[in-house]
Design a protein around this nucleic acid. Structure first.
Lengths: 206, 206
DNA sequence: TAGATTGTTAATCGATTAACAATC
DNA sequence: TAGATTGTTAATCGATTAACAATC
């Protein structure tokens, strides 16, 4: 299969293209070119064409890409033409904010269960969600066949939670805890730590 | 100056190293090696040594790196040995969550002003912050000499806000709005869009 | 000293870009 | 047709890794 041969760095740009295409569509455009897209994103047109060509010829010489069509193709490549169930672990300040964030559902990622280890929180509601005991994590995730989870617990508990999630069948983790996770190679992890981004920018400030 | 010659990809890893060193220190370690650090981070030891060597010889043959010393050196390189003032634009759901997040202050980034365009929000409190009208943005940021801002407004207003921030002197922007910003090349932008990370992982799921 | 690990060089690997034939 | 833009190849550029002398 071709999928194993496509560099991850290419995959990482597809969601960015998709987001820009959504925007162009919203603005009323129907067609775009690698040049226009590249200018918006600060990416060379050659790179965009090369990235897209891994998955097929989506454009037409002389005219460019039909935005609606390209969007649909990219959504299928990324497997985001479907809806995904997501588990959230941690219902503290950070977890609650994540649970309330509307951007997930709007783009096809539905949080369907929220876990916390604190008896104070279990049984309470966070946003629209009923917080469950972490003891239910394995059974709930296994039964529902959930493959994606978000971790929003303190750093010191994140690795343990990740291990539990993986044992229960989770294969993709979005980690908000400020710590690196060690996971088997068939499990994917992405990190959100806004402070890292700030620290990367201060280097360049006077 | 050497700084312009160091690849940005190297800079982007320094905060990750720093975070791992913090953790090692918390766990009671006093010394580490490129091998140990690399194993934790899933990065080759050669890469860590090479990255660090851009800034000086921080280690000792045979023994490795003193964690406390290396932390201090990296903090200086990244300019995070000091405290930074940060402006936040947008006090809606997302902006409020950002304002309440404790991780910023803990690591030296102090939100000192919050702006919103909605008269409903101006004058109210969000977390510990008094929300100001966006009309005050330019004067407030200029007077305080703020160089870092976070954008948490709807996508359609993000570019306009960025333009205002830059005109007022901001040189580093952390953008939570799901849209690419076009900025002059002496302005740094980083993006936080958790959905992008999820979309990048679903590609690999069955 | 023997063992370990750095800092650095050279070799390898991979990603980006330039260029252009194909073609709409 | 003339103009525009794709998809793709080859060339360039840059980043990672392997290896090892230096040295603690």
């Amino acid at each position: 299969m071709a999928s194993t041969m496509i560099p991850d760095i290419v995959i990482s740009r597809l969601p960015i293209y998709l987001r820009a295409l959504d925007r162009l569509a919203q603005e009323g455009h129907e067609v775009t070119s690698s040049q226009e897209l590249g200018k918006r994103l600060g990416i060379s047109s050659a790179q965009i064409r090369k990235d897209l060509s891994h998955f097929g010829g989506f454009g037409k010489q002389g005219t460019g890409y039909k935005i609606h069509y390209l969007k649909e193709q990219l959504r299928q490549v990324l497997k985001v033409e479907r809806e995904w169930e997501v588990a959230l672990v941690g219902a503290g300040d950070l977890g609650s904010a994540v649970a309330r964030y509307k951007g997930f559902t709007e783009r096809g990622f539905h949080i369907t269960c929220v876990f916390d280890s604190s008896p104070d929180k279990v049984g309470k509601k966070v946003g629209a969600f009923h917080v469950q005991s972490i003891d239910k994590l394995t059974s709930e995730i296994t039964e529902r066949g959930i493959q994606i989870a978000m971790i929003a617990v303190p750093a010191e508990h994140a690795q343990g939670v990740a291990d539990q999630l993986i044992a229960a069948g989770v294969r993709a983790i979005l980690n908000y805890a400020p710590i690196n996770l060690n996971v088997p190679e068939d499990v994917h992890v992405q990190y959100i730590d806004p402070v890292l981004h700030l620290q990367r920018m201060t280097y360049y400030l006077p």
